[in-house]
């Protein structure tokens, strides 16, 4: 017994010694590696902003990291040669209507799945919903396109907005998980007072689910603001372009004008980064809420 304890003690001592002497060096090495990673992440951002403030002759001289003087012409030029104000307006309309449609539809559907689990068919339908989350969009793409085209919706915003009013599996899942964590007692009290489902959702569930709804808003803003494929196949005339489509068009037409290109890229990224910093806790929460059951 005694010898076993001694062995254990020796292990413990040598462990503590190793721990204290090497801890500093370990931390140093870890921060060095992380600093390199941080460089890989941040340098492209800085390079983009720096380029957006340069004059053409500086852009074409490699190794100029900072502009001699700050020039904001690149931020104006794209708006002069292409209707970027119009693109911005289109992007905002599509983003806003998607968010509204999704919040309404996914709250209702998510509430149904969360609170009526005893109803026959709930579990089966929920599995179907989860399965569609994994479905690659390509297999529905072409019939959807033909459907919207036959409705006369080609080159309109409808194909990019209407589906949002019919709920998206990912957000239904996210909201359902959140609703299930809200205690039922509040609702039961309201039921006894004679409140209907609509009143309960609006007065009890929505105010309590603000963090989850905020997560939906943020994720959807980024998804639609950055969406390229949808606008690419459904929008045709330039007056209907979104920012993403406008930037791609600019890149294809003026492929050597890196200054203005970086200016638009910067402008497109600013709202995303601003939202991210303003609401980063919702991001982390949202990502982790959806990754494990």
């Amino acid at each position: 017994m005694a010898s076993r304890n001694e062995v254990g003690l020796r292990h413990l001592r040598s462990y503590l010694r190793r721990k204290s002497t090497s801890e500093f060096i370990k931390q140093l090495v870890m921060y060095t590696i992380l600093a390199m990673g941080t460089g890989f992440i941040l340098i492209p951002f800085l390079w983009m902003i720096s380029t957006s403030l340069k004059l053409p002759h500086e852009v074409w001289r490699p190794g100029t990291f900072l502009p001699e003087t700050l020039h904001f012409e690149n931020y104006i030029y794209p708006f002069v040669i292409l209707p970027f104000t119009r693109f911005l307006r289109n992007s905002l309309i599509i983003v806003a209507l998607n968010i509204i449609g999704l919040i309404v539809s996914c709250t209702i559907v998510g509430y149904g799945f969360a609170r009526y689990q005893h109803v026959k068919g709930n579990r089966t339908l929920f599995v179907v919903l989860l399965a569609t989350m994994m479905l690659p969009g390509q297999v529905t793409l072409i019939p959807q396109f033909i459907l919207f085209r036959n409705l006369g919706w080609f080159d309109t915003f409808y194909p990019l907005i209407v589906p949002a009013f019919f709920a998206t599996p990912f957000y239904v899942f996210l909201l359902r998980q959140f609703f299930m964590g809200i205690p039922r007692e509040l609702e039961e009290a309201a039921y006894i007072d004679g409140a209907g489902v609509t009143v309960i959702i609006l007065r009890i569930i929505v105010p309590l689910a603000k963090p989850a709804i905020a997560t939906v808003i943020i994720f959807e803003f980024l998804a639609k603001w950055n969406d390229f494929f949808g606008p690419l196949i459904y929008l045709d005339s330039m007056e209907n372009y979104t920012l993403a489509l406008g930037l791609q068009f600019f890149e294809s037409q003026y492929s050597t004008e890196y200054g203005p290109m970086m200016a638009i890229a910067t402008l497109m990224m600013v709202p995303c980064i601003a939202i991210f910093f303003y609401a980063s806790k919702y991001f982390i929460q949202g990502i982790n809420l959806t990754s494990f059951k």
Binding site: I41, P44, M48, L222, W225, N226, F228, L247, I275, F283
Partner: peptide, 27 residues
């Protein structure tokens, strides 16, 4: 963690355009 997450919020055309510029062979 915030820094490493940053590129994930700006995905899409803007990011690709930025990398086209990063990868330009001459400059």
């Amino acid at each position: 963690r915030t820094v490493f997450y940053l590129p994930s919020v700006v995905s899409g055309v803007a990011v690709v355009v930025l990398w086209i510029w990063m990868f330009n062979p001459e400059i």
